[in-house]
Design a protein around this nucleic acid. Sequence first.
RNA 1: GCCGAUGUGGCGAAAUGGCAGACGCAACGGACUUAAAAUCCGUUGGGCCGUAAAAGGCCCGUGCCGGUUCGAGUCCGGCCAUCGGCACCA
Length: 917
Amino acid sequence: MSIHVHSCPFVVNIGFVMSERRKPYPFDHIDPKWQAIWQERQLFHAPNPGEKHFDPAKPKFYVLDMFPYPSGAGLHVGHPEGYTATDIVARYKRMRGFNVLHPMGWDAFGLPAEQYAIKTAEHPATTTRANIAKFKTQLKRIGFSYDWQREINTTDPRYYKWTQWIFLQIYNSWFNPDTKKAEPISTYRGTDPDSVRLAYVADFPVNWCPELGTVLANEEVVDGKSEVGGFPVVRRPMRQWMLRITAYAERLLNELDGLDWPEGIKLLQRNWIGRSEGAEIDFSVAGGDDHGLTVSARDYKIRVFTTRPDTLYGATYMVLAPEHSLVDLIVSEEQWPAVREYRERAARKSDLERTELAKEKTGVFTGAYAINPVNNERIPIWVADYVLPGYGTGAIMGVPGHDERDLAFARKFNLQIHEVVQPLGDEDPIGFVGEGIAINSPVIEGLPSREAIRKITEWIEQHDLGKGAINYKLRDWLFSRQRYWGEPFPIIWENGKHRALDDEELPVVSPPLEEYKPTGTGEPPLARAREWVRYSDKALRETNTMPQWAGSCWYYLRFCDPQNDQRFVGEEAERYWMGGVNDEARMANDEGMTKPKPRKANEEIRHSKINSSFVIRHSSFPAKPGGVDLYVGGTEHAVLHLLYARFWHKVLFDLGYLSKPEPFQRLVNQGIILGEDNQKMSKSRGNIVNPDDVIDQYGADAFRCYEMFMGPLEQMKPWSMRGVEGVARFLARVWRLLMTENQAGDWELSARIKDIDPTGAETKITHATTKKVTEDIESLSFNTAISQMMIFVNVFIKAETLPLSAMRRFLILLNPFAPHLTSELWEKLNAKFRDNAGDITDQKWPDYDERLLVEDEVEIVIQVNGKVRHRMKMSIQATDEEAKAAALANPEIQKFTAGKTIRKIVVVPRKLVNIVV
RNA sequence: GCCGAUGUGGCGAAAUGGCAGACGCAACGGACUUAAAAUCCGUUGGGCCGUAAAAGGCCCGUGCCGGUUCGAGUCCGGCCAUCGGCACCA
C-alpha cells in the first residue's frame, strides 16, 4: 500500500476514509459471489471428447496463455494483461458456440526459482509451492475463466514423468536426412547409432557460469553474461547432453510460413536460425620446405565454408579457429609455442572478451601453408579467434579484398590483398563486399557475382574440391544443467555408456536433497545423493538435470488431457484440441472471424524479400499447420521457448504422436506495461503496481477493463491509477444505469427499464455497438471496443426509458470484459422480468444487422482545393450529379468559386465533394 | 554496424487515402452541498479575426525534409529520435 502514496494520497493519509468510503458500486460483494458460483458450478470446465456433457457438434477453440513462472514477488500488473485478453476471447468464443480450451498452469522448474530458494534459505520445493499458491490466489481474484481442473505444474512428478518420456522419444530417434523426419533409432542402418541420436552426449567447450555453477545454452547467454543474474560466462570443455535441433533447422525455418505470427517474431526466428547459402571448399595443406612438416601433413585438407565462392581467387590466407582439431597437426615446430600460448589465452577468454571487447583482431601464424585450389598459390595458415569453432567448418579462407573482417586482419598482419570483384559503381574495390563483376578470376572472369557463384561452385564440384552447401547459425541445444531444481534424466551409465531407462521406471524422481546448492565444480548436486545415484552394482544414474525450458516445451499438449496416466496426451483429446479432426467445422464457423488484421503493404514487401527459392514445401503440408488457435505472451520468448517447443513438437509429430506439425497457429505478443513514471517496473525503482491493491480499490472488472483500455494490446504503455479510476467510473455508470438507490439506501433495479421496443435511434446505437465490439474482439482491439460501450452508456444514461432488450444485449457485450458486474445485473433483470432468459454465460452472442446501421441522411463535406469549406445534409440516395450540383449551388462555396474556372470535381459518394479551381 | 518496431493535444489514445484528436484522464467553469467527496452539465490542439456576448470565419498543426494525389497521420524516397533484437556467423 505504501508504494501508492503518491498516486492516492488521501486514501493513505486518512486510512479510515477508505473503508468508510462508499464504493461506486458494490464490487466487493459481487466479485467473490460470482467467482464462488463459477467455481461451484464448474462453469468453465471443458469436457474432452467422450466425457460427460461433451458436445461434438461445437467447433473447438484453444486459447492459451504463456503459463507463468511463479516467482516469490507475486503477480504484477504486467502478467494479467495477456491473461485478460485471452479471457475475453475465451468468454466471447463460448458465447459464440465454441468448445473453448482455456487452461492455466505453472512453469516452476529452473534457475530463478532455485536462486530465490537459495536466497531465502528454503528448499525450492517449499518456495515453489508457496509461490504457486500466491499466484493462484491472485489470478482467481481477477475472475479468469480458466478450467482449473486442467491445472498443471511442471515440477509435479505426474507431469515430468512425461517430460522424461518425451526426452526418451528424442533419445531413441534419429533424423533421417532422406525423409527429413525423425525416425525410431531402430531404422538407422549405420554402425554407431549413438552418433546420430537426436539426444546425444558431447564433450566440447560450453558456456560455463561459475557464479550459477552450471552450463548455459547459447540462448541463455546475453552479452557474455548469464541471462539470469547477469554473471560472467566462460568457455570450458565439459561432457554435456545435447539435442540435435540443427537437424530441424530447415523445417523450423520453412514451416514458419504458414503461421499467423507477427512478422517481427518470425524474422527473429529466421535470423536466429541464420541460414546461408554458399560452398564448402577443400584446401590442401602444403608441404613445408623448412618448416619441419612431416610428409603426411601434405595429406591434410582444410575445409572452409564461404558464402562467396566467387572470391576464391582473392583468398590470400586461411584462418583456423583456435579450437580447430587440425591446428595441432599442421603447426610448425617453430611456431608451436606461440600458437599454444594463443590458444590457451583464447580458451580463457570469456565470451564478452572474445566478442565485444575484441575490436582489434588478434591471431598467430601456424608456420604452415595451404594451396588455393583454384590457382595453386601457397597461402599462409593462421589461427585467430575471430573465426568461431561452432560455425561452418571452423575454418575460413581469408579474402581481405572483399570482406571487412578479413581486411582488418590482413592489414594488421600485412597479408596480401587481391581485388577480384569489380564494383558496378565507383566504390573502392578494396573492401567491397557487394555484388559486382568477377575480375582476375580466369574461371569466372567477367561474370556478375551471382552467376560467378553458380559457375565456380560447379567448377569446384567437377574438380572434386568441394560442393555447394547451406549453413545455419543455429547450434545444437545444450540440454543439461548442473543444478538441483530440474527434471532428472531418465538415463543410466554402465561401463562408460549411456542407456535409457524403461518407460515403466518413469518418473525418475529427484532425491529430496537438503544440500541442493550447486557444487561449484561442475559436478551436479544430484551426485551428492549417493544412494540415489547407485542404480545397480554396475550402473549409475545420470546426475545432470534438464533446463528450465523442458517443461514448457510441451505443456500446451498436456493441457489437452492433463489427468492421463497412460499417455502424455490421449490421442483423441490431442486430435480434437490441437485441431486434427475439427478443422472443417472450425473453418466454417470461423470464416473471416479470427483472421489477423490485414497486414500493411510494407509488411508484405518485407516478407517477400525472404529468399524462398530454396524453400522445399511438402505438398501435404497444411495451410494452417498449428494446433493452438490463439497463443498470447511476451516477446521475450520469441526465440527460446517458441523455437524449442516447435522443435519438440516436430519430433513428436514425426514419430506419429501428434496430428499437426506446428504447435501454435496464431501468436500475439502483449506489450510491456511500464510504471507510472514511464520506466520499466522494478523493485529498485519502487514503481511496481500490484493487482491486489487495484482490485481492493476498484474491483476486478475495473482492473480487467483498464488493462484493456490502456491501449493496443501489443504496445508498450505506462500504467495510470487515474486511468483505472476513469474505467471504474464507467462501470459505476453501467451499474447506475440499471440500478437506483432507494430511500433506505439499498440498490434496486431502475424503474426506467421497461420491456418495450427501442426507438430507431436506440436500435441503431445498439447494433452499431454490437458490430464494433464483435469486430474489435476478433481483432483484439479491446481498447476501442470499450470506447464504443462507453458511448453506448453515455447515450442511454440520458434516456427516460431503457428498453429491456437493448440492456440485455449490452450486458452480453460487456460480459467478457466485466463478467462479475454483468452477471449480477443480468441476474437482477431475470429476477424482475422473469422472461426465462437463463444465465448470462449461457447466452448466445448477439448478431447485428448492417441494414439498421445505414443513415438515411448523411452529412457531406464540401471541399475547395482539398480544404473543407462547408458541409451539407443530403439523402443517402443522392447521386454524384446531385451532390455536385448542390455543392456548386451552395452560396458559401460560391464565395470560393466566384470568378474562377472549375477544373475538376471529385465526388466520394456519401462522403464529400471536392471542387478544384 | 545490421535488422525490426514506434513517433499524433498537458497525458493514455482514435482515425477503409476523404471533417485529425473518437473514447478516457487531467485541467477549467457551473449545478447539487453548510462544506467537501461522489454525481451531473459545459469548455478544453495552437494562433488570429469577429461580436456587448454569442453565432460565425480564417491560418497553422500528426518527429524533420521532399514526392505522388483533387485530397496524405495514412502511400513513396531521404533524414532524425526512442525502444527492441542480432552482433567477428565467413
